[in-house]
Amino acid sequence: MEVWTRLRAKSGSTAKDVSELAALLAAALIAGLFERLIPFDFAVPGVKLGLSNAVVLMSLYLLGAGRAFMLAVLKCFAIALVSGDWAAFMYSISGSMMSFFAMLMTKRALGGENGASPIGVSAVGAVFHNIGQLLMAAFILGSLNVMAYLPVLAISGIITGILVGFIVKFALPAVKKARRSARG
């Protein structure tokens, strides 16, 4: 008990915070794995919905930057652990990091009362996820030629980003309400 109190003082996390993060991680994991089941063969590899990003974006609004960042990192590890696809992990982690910081900056700089809603933030995040993935691919292939995929990926990212943004925008009030009553 004493150890826990000390840990808590250090990290500022309560048991509720930890379990909340775990629940969100589980949600992101399910979203990410579910998405892999959808065959989504477009003109360019890497086109996908980005459902697990909905959870990251939501936690950015619910829990703030620090915990949302933890979730973005843990999500990539969790999906790779469960799916066993460690080749995809390289791309997902670089995409997630780019996407996270792009969303954070967009939210901070352009968000606010009359500013960007989760829809705009999500669209930016989706495009930067693709940019991060392509940079990793360019690094692995040792050639920037792979950037030829960027326009198609960016436009598909804008579309899926807007969809994910709508999900977050409409789910956020309900999740906030549930969170208030759960945390008392």
Partner: peptide
């Protein structure tokens, strides 16, 4: 969807098309 969202999306679309033109 707010005005800022529309501006962001328009900017992203413009940049994507510019990248497409550049690559072409």
């Amino acid at each position: 969807m707010k005005r800022m969202d529309a501006i962001i999306i328009a900017a992203l679309l413009f940049l994507s098309l510019a990248a497409f033109a550049g690559i072409q």
